[in-house]
Amino acid sequence: MSAAMLIARRELLAYVRSPLGASVVAAALLVDGIYFYWKGLTEKLVSAQVLQEFFYGASGTTMVAAIVLSMRLLAEERQLGTLTLLNTSPVRDGEIIVGKFISAFGILAVMTLLTLYMPLLIFVNGKVSVAHIAVGYLGLLLLGAACIAIGLFASALAKSQVVAAIVGVVILVPLLLLWVVARAVDPPLNTFLSALALHHENYRPFMVGILELRAVAFYLAVTYFFLLAATKTLEARRWR
């Protein structure tokens, strides 16, 4: 087993044995369920719109869950002193980061897939495309991966979990609000800023069931960038 998978397995065990993993999943499912009930049963929307609204609401819980799950990944290790074990083992910093990412993404993926019964309920009284559901979930997972990478980077910077969560939010919110800034500026800067927005421009195609490779590439690039930044942060700490 590679070092990254070894670290990921230990992290998953920690999520399972601590109340954090279950609490985050339970809270996210509760919020998603209430939102779905509100949109699906109390508003007069067609099936595709219900599904679209579901993916919109789930993206919010996914982002919050990703930050909460990732804030502890390195900051907690630093608080416990266990980061020293990883730092003094023959493991590369990149493997530590990938292992941590896989574990948090694994929990987030389980959480996301547990919401699957909600879109399937639409089939009781309506009709939606399975492809729409699949593309929507792909978008949720990609958005979640990017947010975990941002949270992991924040966790690499911070000494405590609370600070890691704050730093994560401080990075995430401007990236979310870039589309608002884009509205206020002239072309071509508005196009550029809009294309960099974490949610609006890049997530909406997934919500409506359109698979855009540009959006997929965007989320993969954001994920890679922040994982790389987290790796470099770990490396830099050895030179301090």
């Binding site: 070092a3 070894l6 670290i7 920690a14 044995r17 002193g81 074990l85």
Partner: peptide, 24 residues
């Protein structure tokens, strides 16, 4: 290190197996 780098939720054996594998 001055503070043992142990994961509280693991058993002693689980932890040592993890450390051994981590060390190759």
């Amino acid at each position: 290190p001055d503070t043992p780098p142990v994961y509280p939720e693991m058993t002693v054996e689980e932890y040592l197996v993890f450390a051994a594998k981590l060390r190759g």
